[in-house]
Design a protein around this nucleic acid. Structure first.
Lengths: 224, 224
DNA sequence: CTTGCTTCTGAGGCTTTTCTGAGATCTCCG
DNA sequence: CGGAGATCTCAGAAAAGCCTCAGAAGCAAG
C-alpha cells in the first residue's frame, strides 16, 4: 500500500460485534491495520491517541453517541479523517453527520466495495507526481531525500529523518501528535522518545525553527 | 463563512446549463465564489490554473468525460478536492468515480442541503485548523489551541487555559458558575480557587476584558 | 574486520504547565 | 461607612512534558 513500510491504521467504532468482526476482516484483507472499539467512550479514548489515518464510526453507539464522539474528537484537535456509518439515511441526518465534522457519510446497508472506495478516497495522500514538498522557504526533494535551501544548498537526510519530515510536510500547519508520528515513521516497538530524538536531529541539521513544538499536542511545521 | 476574508472558490463543471445556473446561484448564496465550465475541456483548462478550493464535476460531459477530466487533473498533480455529480448511482459507478480521484461522489437527483454539507466537509480538510469559535473580535482556534487576534497574531494557550476558554466560548453570554467550570475543566480533587487562577492566567495573556466576572454568580465572555 | 553511517535507547537536565495557598483588593449590603 | 465574603494576584512547589546527547547496536561498503 504505502511503501510497504507501514500499513494505514483504521479505528473502527461499531457496537454490533458481528458487523465489526466482518469489517475488521475486510479491512485486514485490504491491508489495513485495524483496531476496534465497541462503544463511544472507548472510541474516544483510542481516537485521542491520534495514531490513526482514518476512523470509521457508527452513528448509534452505547455510552457515547457517534456524533457526540466525533464532536469531542474535533474539539480536541483530532483532525483524522472520519467516515460515519449510519442506518439513518435522510438528507437531514447526513447533513447533521457531515456538519458534526465527518468527512464522509455512508448509509447502511452498504456494499463493501463502496466502503473501501470511500476509505481509499479519504486516505489518499500521495501527491502523485509531485517531486518536492514546500517547506517554508525551502523544499523537500522527495526523490533524493534532501532538503533544498533557498540558495540551492542541499542537506541530505537519513531515511528516518526524511520520513519524519515528509510526514510533517504532507500536512503543513496541522499538528501531528507524537503518537501519530511514532506509528507512521517508526516501528511500534520503539521507545516513547524516538520522535523527540529525531526532531532533535532535524533541528540540528536544519535549524531550530523548522519544527515547532506545540506543548502537550505535538509537532508542527509551516506555522503561521 | 470563513472570517469574511476570502470566499472559497468553486469550479463548477456541468453541461446542463439550467442546472449549472441554479447551482451557481445556490453556491453564491452560501458565500462561494463560483466559476462555471460547460464542457470537460474548458473544465480542464480552468482546473489546471489551480486557483480553486474545491471543484464540482458532472460525470457526463461533452468533449471530455468527467472522470477523464478528473484523471487528467490528478495526473498533472492537481490536488484540489473534487466532488463528482452523477446520474449513475450503482455501487460500481461510485467506486469508479472515487478511484478516479474524486473525494466525494453525489448521485443525482440530490438535495441542495446535502451538496452544501458535503462541500463544507471537503473545504474543511484543507483549512486544517480554521475551525474556530468566535471570541468577540478574535477567535479561538480549536485545533491549535490558539487565540487568533484580529490582526492575525496568535497566542498559544496551555491545555487547561484552552479548555477553560473553550468552555466559556461554547456558550458566550451565558454565566458559567465557578463550580461548573471547576467540574468541567479540572479534576474534582483540585482546590476551590483553581478557576480563579486560570481566569487570571487568561486575562494576563489575552487582556483584562476577555472574561467578565459576575460577582457571586460566575464568569462570562462576550458580554452585552 | 574495520570504518562510517544510521538507528535506537535511556538518563539527566531543562522548560512549561499545573496546582496550592496566602495576602491584597474589591463588592455588596446592612 | 464597615465588615463579611468574594475575587484577584502572584510566588513557588510539584508534576508533566520536552530537549539534549552519549553510547550501544545494527548495517553496509571497503
Amino acid at each position: 500500500m504505502r511503501d510497504g513500510v507501514a500499513k494505514p491504521r483504521v479505528l473502527l467504532v461499531e457496537d454490533d460485534r458481528e458487523l465489526a468482526g466482518m469489517l475488521g476482516e475486510l479491512l485486514a484483507d485490504e491491508g489495513y491495520e485495524t483496531d476496534a472499539a465497541y462503544d463511544g467512550q472507548r472510541g474516544l479514548h483510542l481516537g485521542l491517541t491520534g495514531q490513526y489515518d482514518v476512523m470509521v464510526i457508527d452513528r448509534r453507539l452505547p455510552v457515547l453517541d457517534g456524533l457526540e464522539l466525533l464532536r469531542r474528537l474535533r474539539a480536541r484537535a483530532v483532525t483524522t479523517r472520519v467516515l460515519v456509518l449510519s442506518a439513518l439515511g435522510e438528507v437531514a441526518d447526513r447533513v447533521a453527520g457531515l456538519d458534526a465534522g465527518a468527512d464522509d457519510y455512508l448509509v447502511k446497508p452498504f456494499e463493501a466495495e463502496e466502503l473501501l472506495a470511500r476509505l481509499r478516497a479519504l486516505g489518499r495522500r500521495d501527491l502523485d507526481g509531485a517531486e518536492c514538498l514546500p517547506l517554508g522557504a525551502a523544499a523537500l526533494d522527495l526523490r533524493r531525500h534532501e532538503v533544498v535551501l533557498p540558495r540551492g544548498e542541499r542537506i541530505t537526510l537519513s531515511g528516518r529523518e526524511f520520513e519524519l519530515l515528509r510526514t510533517l510536510a504532507q500536512r503543513p500547519k496541522a499538528i501531528h501528535p507524537r503518537a501519530a508520528l511514532r506509528t507512521h515513521v517508526f516501528a511500534d516497538s520503539t521507545g516513547e522518545s524516538i520522535v523527540d530524538t529525531y526532531v532533535y536531529y532535524l533541528r540540528r541539521k536544519l535549524g531550530r525553527d523548522v519544527v515547532r513544538t506545540v506543548h502537550g499536542l505535538g509537532y508542527q511545521i509551516g506555522a503561521v
